[in-house]
Write a protein that binds this DNA or RNA. Structure first.
Lengths: 179, 179
DNA sequence: CAGTATCCTGTCCGATACTG
DNA sequence: CAGTATCGGACAGGATACTG
């Protein structure tokens, strides 16, 4: 029972972590977003051990983030391409990239995002699609979504949902013995 | 030598993962962004074992993401508050949140971001701060930053830097000749 | 209440060797 | 070339007991 399945949680962040929580998985997806598709491409660019790569790749396929596709028959060959779900992970990568660049680049930013045409560096921010206003905590908060309100009766750790209580934060009874 | 230190890599994503790569760490930061500061708040809202919490908390402090602050002397009491670096992690959380909501919410979105005043749900996107244009791969690409160009002579796996080769995308060769 | 100390299990990950 | 098989170490994570 090593890892409590985060998927049990209602929090979408936890659910996501259940799919790509491992270090390599994220880096593999990053490479895939760069266009890599084949085993040895990942192996070489990441310097990952082949068995680990096999495992992570299989995990990502099972999680629905990558799709394994046979692209050659005579010698059976497969390629790994991102699903829509995998491609949708890009904003997370970009956000992580920006964060890393800002705080963990002692010698300066070694890698930056640039506009493909102008070549001008980009500065990634997360905004609301409609208002285009930055999503900062002062202006936005998390709330129960449609699916949650439909079953508010259920007793759960609200914070684990990603739901911030507006008031202080109630003491959450949580029996340590589920069953 | 269990985990190859990702910090060795020049890739900012890898460096970031070196700091908050563990599952719990991310969830702890998420809770901290919600305003939690004390040990038992984290413990209860996450349902995490106390020793794990101690370890992750210590790790986050060492990574410079949380700061441990004594807020009471008579009974020595500490609180854990986000550093600037930790607060800057919020966009990543938001992006992950959106991703999880989009793809792993079978029964509908249980948690959504809303505008604090209007209550209207927000739809997070990553854009360039200046142009406000969405950062999609068709329009943007990664490139060597200032720190990288200064030592281009060094031989490294380019992709591990997060540097995409300018041409179409190196892996995109659709050559039907596997080997 | 706010943690620390111990012990244990699972598994992430690396290294290496092997196969069609 | 594109992986699979096997081995072993380190540590995340869980359960429990204990302390000021």
């Amino acid at each position: 029972m090593q890892r409590k399945s985060f998927s049990k949680m209602q929090c979408p962040v936890a659910r996501g972590l259940d799919r790509i929580g491992e270090w390599w998985s994220i880096l593999i997806v990053r490479e895939a977003l760069h266009g890599l598709t084949r085993f040895d491409q990942f192996e070489q660019s990441l310097g990952i051990a082949p068995n680990m790569l096999t495992r992570r790749l299989a995990g990502l396929v099972k999680a629905g983030i990558l799709e394994k596709r046979r692209y050659s028959d005579r010698p059976p060959r497969y390629e790994y391409v991102l699903t829509e779900c995998g491609r949708d992970f890009q904003p997370v990568i970009i956000a992580m990239h920006a964060w890393g660049n800002r705080h963990f680049a002692p010698e300066g930013q070694s890698v930056v995002l640039v506009n493909a045409r102008t070549g001008k560096p980009a500065d990634p921010v997360v905004v609301d699609r409609n208002s285009r206003r930055p999503l900062v905590d002062s202006e936005f908060r998390v709330a129960a979504g449609p699916a949650a309100v439909a079953r508010t009766r259920r007793k759960m750790a609200a914070s684990a949902w990603g739901i911030a209580q507006n008031p202080p934060l109630p003491a959450k009874r949580k029996s340590r013995t589920p069953a």
